[in-house]
Design a protein around this nucleic acid. Structure first.
Length: 498
RNA sequence: GGGCCGUUAGCUCAGUAGGUAGAGCAGCUCCCUUUUAAGGAGUUGGUCGCUGGUUCGAGCCCAGCACGGCCCA
């Protein structure tokens, strides 16, 4: 894949089309913008799809359609064209007898060009609802040939780099992004109906907070201030709960300065919501309802296949604690030593986990969980009671302060959501931040900063609150049977072309 | 960062043992007034990702690099 600007010599196919465009420039505007449609392909099918040839002849309906020429079949003095608009495709029938000189021009137009046509609807010999063109115009010349009309565009790299081409020729790709939009629309409607308020909080933050991740750094020139692209909106959203916005959510991008994979893009979309007077159990129930609601909305059923495996969202979602999960997947482990640091450290070594020097029992538990258990949760599963050590923003459990009232939600072995009862005790939160700072000073680049303003906000008192984050890209992957996050991102990050 | 795989015409792909590059579609010329990947006849089109090396000779073998894919850390 070489760009013409750098290759010096233009492709012959493009040169041919450029010559056609040059000829067009001699007359009327080559890129006119005075054509207006009055019908879309899908509307035409919906409105007149059930009318037969005789009805259409007796009740003439004239439509103006426009779109990209996707198929061109010339048979001497008559032709068929397929025009693609945003709703679908409509066939246009062109005849020399009706179009005169324009018909000769049409024969020189190319698949990929943008056309407008007007004429009455009729049915062809084979019964296809079509437009019998009385006029047809070239609205925009395509200089580049489209990929193979039958095989489409298969090259993964080109599909990602030139998504516009992928969207033109691959129906399946368009369907993925249509479904992505439908899912996000559903989530918004669901939350709006619960009286949640959608808000926007800073993407550029002086202190990156709300998650354990390495941030991107940028610089504000006027303030001469380094700033961070947010790794999460969490601390800002909770400030809003302090302010009395008792139900808030935000759907937007987070940025994490980490590697790329089939599960990770440096910028990804997260839904975060904060719900006062609710707890983590309410959130688990909410997630179950959302998952079924998404299925109902975009699939019309709760049974689906993801990457060859069947899933049934009607079945109750599993719920298991972190410690139960560790015991279930590490048969030899001693249940009474699950919080014993030297014991867990030895167990980690046996699993080939490189534990950090300062890791406590909670961190070591999570390492063991992630290595041995996480990927096994294929059916929807809530894993809860996360250790406080790895949950610096979560409320400690009343009966057992080693753990927090926090869960993560797994489907197909992947984390789709993370939720917890929020830590609203400002003194506990300050102590947790100090512990994070100690970790950061010990070399943990993902440890959190101390956010003094956030502590100040909590000191005004935050109501008891539950907070949830849902990874939208992974959710869309699941509901579109997509193996890679790049398949659900319109413009996934790639290295620059050479 | 490591391992494996890939990169050949605009697109989708073949390419024999290392002997000088092919198909289909698209394009171009011609025929064709109801096609559905329209059809028929003819025809153009390649720095085989890049740079080196081995060889009389490299798309093919070797090394490095670039980009992509999958897996691992």
């Amino acid at each position: 894949m070489v760009l013409d600007e750098t290759s010096g010599e233009e492709n012959r196919l493009i040169a041919e089309r450029r010559a056609k465009l040059a000829a067009l420039r001699g007359g009327a505007p080559a890129f006119p913008n005075d054509f207006r449609r009055d019908a879309l392909a899908a509307q035409i099918e919906a409105t007149w799809g059930d009318k037969d040839a005789a009805w259409l002849e007796a009740n003439p309906v004239t439509v103006r359609v426009g779109g990209r020429l996707m198929a061109k079949r010339v048979m001497g003095k008559a032709s068929f064209a397929k025009l693609a608009d945003r709703s679908g495709r409509i066939q246009v029938f062109l005849q020399q007898a009706a179009l005169g000189e324009t018909y000769e021009a049409w024969k020189g137009w190319d698949v990929g060009d943008i056309l407008g046509a007007e004429g009455p609807l009729f049915r062809t010999k084979t019964g296809e609802l079509s437009v019998r063109a009385t006029t047809v115009r070239l609205l925009a010349k395509s200089l580049r040939p489209l990929p193979d009309k039958w095989h489409g565009l298969a090259d993964t790299e080109t599909r990602y780099r030139q998504r516009y081409v992928d969207l033109i020729v691959n129906d399946a790709s368009r369907a993925v992004f249509a479904r992505r939009v439908a899912i996000i629309r559903y989530l918004r409607a669901f939350l709006d109906a619960m009286d949640f308020m959608e808000v926007e909080t800073p993407m550029m933050q002086p202190i990156p907070g709300g998650a354990a991740a390495r941030p991107f750094v940028t610089h504000h020139n006027a303030l001469d201030l380094d700033m961070y692209l947010r790794i999460a909106p969490e601390l800002y959203l909770k400030r809003l709960v302090v302010g009395g916005l008792e139900r808030v959510y935000e759907v937007n991008r987070n940025f994490r300065n980490e590697g790329l994979s089939t599960q990770h893009n440096p910028e990804f979309t997260m839904l975060e919501l904060y719900w006062a007077y609710a707890d983590y159990r309410d959130l688990m129930d909410l997630v179950e309802r959302l998952m079924r609601g998404v299925a109902d909305t975009v699939l019309g059923k709760r049974q689906l296949e993801y990457q060859g495996r069947a899933f049934d969202l009607d079945a109750p979602f599993h719920r298991v604690t972190v410690e139960e999960a560790i015991l279930a997947h590490n048969p030899g482990i001693d249940p009474l030593s699950l919080r014993d640091v030297p014991y867990l450290r030895r167990w980690c070594e046996g699993l080939g986990i490189a534990a950090g020097k300062h890791d406590g029992a909670g961190k070591l538990q999570i390492e063991i969980f992630e290595k041995t258990a996480e990927h096994t949760y294929l059916d929807p599963t809530f894993v809860y009671a996360y250790p406080a050590e790895v949950s610096p923003l979560s409320r400690a459990n009343d009966a057992d302060p080693f753990i927090t009232d926090r869960f993560e939600f797994f489907v197909a072995g992947r984390e789709l959501a993370n939720g917890f009862s929020e830590l609203n005790d400002p003194e506990d939160q300050a102590a947790r931040f100090r512990a994070q700072v100690a970790r950061k000073e010990a070399g943990d680049e993902e440890a959190m900063f101390y956010d003094a303003d956030y502590i100040r906000a909590l000191e005004y008192a935050m109501p008891p609150t539950a907070g949830l984050g849902i990874g939208i890209d992974r959710l869309v992957m699941f509901f579109t049977d997509s193996p890679s996050i790049r398949d659900v991102l319109l413009f996934p990050h790639l290295r620059p072309e050479t």
